[in-house]
Amino acid sequence: MDQQRRILLKSTLAASATGMAISAGLLTPKAVLAAWNTSAFTAKNVNDALTGAYGSTDIPESDKIKLKAPELAQSGSKVTLSVTSNLDKTESISFLVKENIQPLCATFNLGSRTEGYISTNVKIGKSSDVIAIVKADGKLYSIKQYVKVAIGGCGG
């Protein structure tokens, strides 16, 4: 009798623990908000990310955009990237890191009074091309730079 009780207790505990783990795991993707561009951000390569975000992969480079990124980053967990766009009517700026599992880092939609400048910190898994996409007056432009990373910043 006693032994049976032990077994019962053990099995219920195990069941509830796994149940909790499953629900926790399942909740994460479901909590994704509708407004967040899931297809673009969870894309596994640059082309899919660009298709999801802008609907195009053929983006010409422009010398009117400047991307400031370090040539060698000591740690990939915090790499400062800044983009300056000298194009008129800059609408949005995106950052992509080619070798990251999910390349699209962030999209900044700028208001009419916001100047074409954004600076932010991103994680870079391993040495990779960093791409900035600028949308100005309905057209897309890009610029890229290679960033060498001494210690990766994803997965620690």
């Binding site: 790499v79 962030a106 100047e115 400048y117 932010t120 910190n121 991103v122 994803c154």
Partner: peptide, 19 residues
């Protein structure tokens, strides 16, 4: 003035600078 979508690859304690 700024409407941003971020991914997991933005650093801990996100820092954003704009004009």
């Amino acid at each position: 003035v700024l409407d941003t979508e971020l991914n997991t690859s933005v650093s801990k304690n996100p820092y954003i600078k704009f004009k």
